[in-house]
Design a protein around this nucleic acid. Structure first.
Length: 578
RNA sequence: GCGUCCUUAGCUCAGUUGGAUAGAGCAACAGCCUUCUAAGCUGUGGGUCGAAGGUUCGAUUCCUUCAGGACGCGCCA
């Protein structure tokens, strides 16, 4: 419908513009958008205001001439001029109802698949080996996973890339410490506490010179492919990822073992990258190191920024790894688009790395590489978020707390659900609330972590959306009647119907901008419209006519479908009862 | 010093190719459960959109300057 209105507007403008003063660039500025307020109709265009100056006419008069030249169409009930010169289109309600019927019959709910599916690599989560996932990991993990689901829903081929921190000099120390722990007789070592493991390993390294020497030796052996060190290293990786996998499952995150592509994966490519860049004249030797200088970035002295790709001792750095990584993703996965969900501090590093990759020809112009940044998590005091003892807050602890709060709430309300059903509600509400608290934000700046806010169950939260769904399901449990033809009779029905129509727009916006908060806002507004409709329009009441009852059931049914699908795209479950 | 991102209600945040009266949630206050689930609904109060200029018919949005904050800037990642 939007495209159709754009088309007839252009036709009309062509007729009015007899002196051909309107050029293509002006037509580009003309927009047709869904209105935010029903009083302004369903669609609005700024056409008259854009053209007024060029055509030397008053915008409202111009709007009138444009309207006079529009073709008659029974799908459009009314066209009005409003405010400074907006042209508002009111769509025939019967036509809207027929569109909703089509949407309801479609198992994709009117969201068409992309015409040309892309290979899209999504880099997200990225925990570190031998460290437990902390609450701040939720950002990358949950937002990345929602975008993955949306991109797949639209028919793209998505490659999940969990770029775990599984390489670096710290592994010498960790292997040496693991060896020590394993050799101790009472093998009751609790390696699930990685924080303690890492801390103790570091303590040994700092205090014990023999230990430190061994650790440094193990680094060299590991990088040289020594079998024993490789085995110990793999053990560390597996222990960590086994534990992370439990968390992913608990969080309903779609990452699996096969998506793990850590930093170590690119090791073998690094010498090749360096020599290639040298050959292409991009990298030069500087004080023993191999460096790529970029003119567009400056360092502290105002000189071109040097990106070291090989240290003077022959070691490689994360720029080298990320160069290999982006090249691999394009060569091996034939990526058309690559999304990186990492924190905003990496912005400049990634930008300069990709600048080098473009110069080297690793990233063709046809491939879009995008950084989707977010800020750090702060405490209420505005300082980096830590526990009272100075450690990080474990993600696991946040989820435990969330479930315990939901459980308390169920008890307070004397919720009758028992057994498995009750556990399911506790899980879905708790996980939903935690995920939604993060998904609904759009912040590149730092943001504040607050237990009460993250674990809120009222207002703009996942439980509110889940509750709207459960309310609808309750209605269908109480009637045998089937949904019928939609009749939009009241304002509340009109608002709900209008909101239902723009589901597809919201899904596409998330895919384009990699911002799931757009879908959160949409679903919240949909649920809000539904709640109003629910309060104002009785459905199963005896005084309601059959046609009206069946129409309202149809609106309920479609709302439930959209809520369920929309929440599913966010990685949040719905329940029949809660 | 250079660069990036940011500053919207008491608090936490939406507002993204410039559009109509700047919106939510929480908190505060006043109502609504013998009626489809009150995790809900209705209403009230709360704003110089960091400041000042500029561009525009129109600026929270774009440009400039300034103030404040966070982050980054050669051998960690």
């Amino acid at each position: 419908m939007k495209e159709y209105i754009e088309e007839i507007l252009k036709q009309s403008i062509k007729v009015i513009d007899d002196t051909h003063e309107v050029d293509v660039s002006m037509l580009k500025n003309i927009r047709v958008d869904r209105t935010k307020d029903l009083a302004h109709g369903d669609f609005a265009s700024n056409a008259a205001m854009v053209l007024a100056k060029t055509l030397h006419k008053n915008p409202r008069q111009l709007a009138q001439s444009i309207i006079d030249n529009l073709p008659k169409d029974e799908r459009i009930a009314k066209v009005e001029i409003a405010g400074p010169g907006f042209i508002n289109f009111f769509i025939n309600k019967d036509y809207v109802a027929s569109l909703l019927a089509e949407m309801s019959a479609d198992d994709h709910l009117g969201v068409s698949k992309v015409s040309r599916p892309q290979n899209i690599v999504v880099d997200y989560s990225a925990p570190n080996v031998a460290k437990e996932m902390a609450v701040h990991h939720i950002r990358s993990t949950v937002i990345g996973d929602a975008v993955v689901r949306v991109l797949e829903f639209l028919g793209n081929n998505v490659i999940r890339a969990n770029h775990i921190g599984d390489w670096g000099t710290q592994f010498g120390m960790l292997i040496a410490y693991l060896e020590r722990k394993e050799s101790e007789q009472n093998s009751s070592m609790d390696l699930s506490d990685f924080e303690a493991f890492y801390r103790e390993a570091k303590a040994c390294y700092d205090a014990d010179e023999k230990f430190a020497e061994k650790a440094r030796h193990y680094v060299v052996l590991l990088q040289g492919g020594d079998e024993y060190c490789q085995k110990m290293w793999r053990k560390l990786v597996k222990m960590t990822m086994d534990q992370n996998q439990l968390l992913y499952r608990r969080l309903d995150v779609t990452l699996t073992d096969k998506d793990t592509m850590g930093e170590s994966l690119y090791n073998d490519m690094l010498p090749q990258i360096v020599s290639d860049l040298e050959q292409k004249g991009l990298a030069v030797e500087d004080q023993g190191a191999i460096v790529v200088f970029l003119d567009e970035y400056k360092n502290k002295e105002g000189q071109p920024l040097g990106n070291i790709i090989r240290k003077k001792d022959g070691g490689y750095l994360y720029t080298t790894t990320d160069l290999a990584c982006v090249k691999y993703r394009i060569d091996h996965f034939k990526a058309d688009r690559i999304l990186y969900f990492t924190d905003s501090r990496q912005a400049q590093h990634l930008e300069s790395t990709w600048a080098i990759a473009k110069l080297a020809g690793y990233i063709p112009d046809t491939v879009s590489v995008e950084h989707c940044p977010f800020g750090m998590m702060l405490g209420k005091d505005g300082k980096p978020f830590k526990t009272r003892s100075g450690g990080t807050v474990k993600l696991r602890d946040v989820l435990d707390e969330a479930e315990s709060r939901v459980n308390n709430m169920l008890e307070e309300r004397h919720n009758p659900l028992q057994g498995e059903e009750r556990q399911e509600v506790i899980h879905n509400v708790a996980i939903g609330a935690v995920k939604y608290a993060d998904l609904s934000k759009n912040r590149t700046t730092d943001y504040v972590f607050d237990w009460d806010q993250m674990l809120s169950f009222e207002g703009n939260t996942a439980p509110y959306l889940q509750y709207a769904y459960s309310r609808i399901r309750a209605i269908f449990r109480k009637t045998e009647e089937k949904p019928g033809r939609i009749i939009i009779a009241t304002l509340a029905e009109d608002e709900l119907a209008t909101k239902l129509q723009s589901f597809s727009d919201a899904v596409y916006a998330v895919a384009d901008k990699a911002m799931p908060n757009i879908l959160c806002t949409y679903l919240y507004e949909l649920a809000e419209s539904f709640m109003r409709f629910y309060e104002r329009c009785p459905i199963l009441k005896s005084e309601v006519l059959t046609d009206q009852r069946r129409s309202r059931l149809a609106l309920c049914e479609l709302t439930a479908k959209v809520l369920k699908q929309g929440l599913n795209l966010l990685g949040i479950n719905v329940m029949e009862q809660m």
